[in-house]
Design a protein around this nucleic acid. Structure first.
Lengths: 116, 116
DNA sequence: GCGCAAGTTCAGGAATACAGAACTGTTGAA
DNA sequence: TTCAACAGTTCTGTATTCCTGAACTTGCGC
């Protein structure tokens, strides 16, 4: 099994991050991960917004998040512990990530209100 | 020829914007448009970062930017005048767009420095 | 009218995304 | 140690999206 590789902070690009975020499942995964208090394994995100994702799809989403530099993944025995790289990213990209997350969370809240 | 339609501000979504921005040509067009002092027609962006885009490709990029709600396009006789909708967008999405643009511009600057 | 320039639409091929099936590697219990 | 269950990956075919050249429409000036 391949070792998990992460791009160096200098190799992370705005376009890569925006592409990773351009998929609804991926931005939701990232938002949930950013809100989590401790590292979560991949299968914690098998069900997202009431939809169930196939494991293979999820695995590929995680690969894209990892390769774009948004998250860090570490093998812990059987599972993989995932965390955001927000400290590094905030230093490099200023308020970009937070700005996106804030807007996304505000939108999610608004949608939930509407549904009631 | 179809009339140009723009989504209502309430129908603009974070995912739509991020998808529009996930393409290098589109974010560059938007950045240039945001920096321009007056409305630009589409063909002002035929050459972007040294690359020449086919007209058809450009036309579709503009359609995506328009439908995502990022820009406003108005027919002026033969050509189309394009402007960003940044006032509305800033009101709706807080610092998201500016955060993205700032990071993108900073990255572009860094790249240009490296090339020298 | 004519020619030209600005954009659009269409059609194809290329690239990318998705999901089911089969797989690898790890854990824990018998 | 053997084996079943579990976490995640890889492979593969299909569906979707993206890109671009060619043909087209519309508007302007001569």
């Amino acid at each position: 099994m391949k070792p998990l590789t992460h791009p160096h902070i200098d190799d992370i690009t705005v376009e890569g991050i925006l592409h990773a975020f351009s998929n609804p499942a991926r931005i939701q995964i990232y938002a949930a991960m950013a809100a989590a208090e401790c590292p979560q394994c991949c299968s914690a995100y098998l069900s997202i917004k009431g939809k169930i994702l196939p494991k293979s799809t999820l695995s590929q989403h995680f690969a894209i998040l990892r390769e774009s530099g948004l998250i860090r993944s570490e093998r812990r025995g059987n599972e993989i512990h995932n965390t955001t790289r927000c400290d590094e990213l905030d230093k490099k990209f200023g308020g970009m990530i937070d700005g996106i997350l804030d807007a996304y969370l505000a939108q999610s809240l608004a949608v939930r209100k509407k549904k009631r």
